[in-house]
């Protein structure tokens, strides 16, 4: 009996391993092929991209803007995530749907919407024009990234707070902690891994955004815009070295994030 059961179980695992292999194979081949082709057959092009100031400034802009967008998402998203995790109120479902909306909306549509709000005569673009220019400017890049990446921050953080038993905060309060202290000594450390994962997801999502960004801010060019432009003008040869460089940088960032969030 035990033997047949273990045999059945091992059959299941063998099948699962085969399926997992194909799943992984698909992802790995798409990512690895350009990297290896580039590093083997086009090393010179790759190095000249690595040292091209235009390329480097585009990549820096992309990573930096996305980081700022994530910072803004954290500033407003942590309180929102906490309220969604802790409180029940009329219209909560609606708020949750609104948070998820940027995931659903096609990115080109998001770009149109952003343009409509933030351009020179838009609802927000116009009153802010004397202070901040969004159209074809870094703030435009940041708000476009913020829009598409915010849900990727808020959702894991909300789950993180949900996983913290409210009674722990009650106990902290009874021990003399103000609501603020209970929040930062108990809720935050216990949701720490979710917050870190939210930062990683949202940062990555911002870096990868293209459609929403170009409509509002084609210039200054983010990495994706540059790659797209190079592809149109010079084909694979012109665009792949930059794509590979961006891929390697992102991989480095996310691997270090992974290891940081697993550590504790």
């Amino acid at each position: 009996m035990a033997k047949t059961r273990s045999l059945k179980q091992s059959k299941m695992f063998i099948l699962f391993c085969v399926a997992s292999f194909f799943g992984l194979f698909f992802i790995v081949i798409v990512l690895a092929e350009p990297i290896f082709s580039q590093l083997i057959f086009g090393l010179d092009d790759f190095f000249s991209s690595c040292t091209d100031p235009e390329v480097l400034s585009c990549i820096g802009l992309t990573i930096g803007s996305s980081f700022i967008a994530t910072g803004i998402a954290a500033l407003f998203g942590i309180p929102l995530a906490y309220i969604l995790a802790r409180k029940n109120f009329f219209g909560k479902r609606l708020v949750e749907s609104v948070v998820d909306l940027p995931i659903m909306v096609p990115h080109m549509v998001a770009g149109i919407a952003l343009f409509s709000v933030f351009h020179r005569h838009g609802l927000i673009g116009e009153p802010f024009f004397p202070i901040i220019k969004f159209f074809d400017a870094i703030p435009g890049v940041v708000v476009a990234m913020l829009f598409v990446s915010a849900p990727f921050f808020i959702n894991p953080v909300r789950e993180g707070f949900q996983s913290v038993d409210p009674r722990l905060e009650n106990v902290a309060r009874s021990l003399g902690a103000s609501p603020w202290k209970a929040f930062h000594r108990v809720a935050i450390p216990l949701a720490y891994r979710h917050i870190l994962s939210g930062i990683g997801m949202s940062w990555g999502r911002g870096i990868s955004e293209f459609a929403a960004v170009i409509l509002l801010a084609y210039y200054p060019m983010v990495a994706s815009t540059l790659i797209y432009e190079k592809f149109l003008m010079h084909g694979l040869e012109g665009s792949r070295p930059i794509a590979v460089l961006l891929m390697l940088i992102c991989l480095g960032i996310f691997l270090s994030f992974r290891s940081a969030s697993v550590k504790r």
Binding site: D165, R167, N170, V171, S174, G176, S178
Partner: peptide, 15 residues
């Protein structure tokens, strides 16, 4: 608020 009441609280699941 609870922090000003000076009460100790012990839950069933220890918390």
């Amino acid at each position: 608020p609870p922090e000003d009441r000076n009460v100790g609280f012990i839950y069933q699941d220890y918390s």
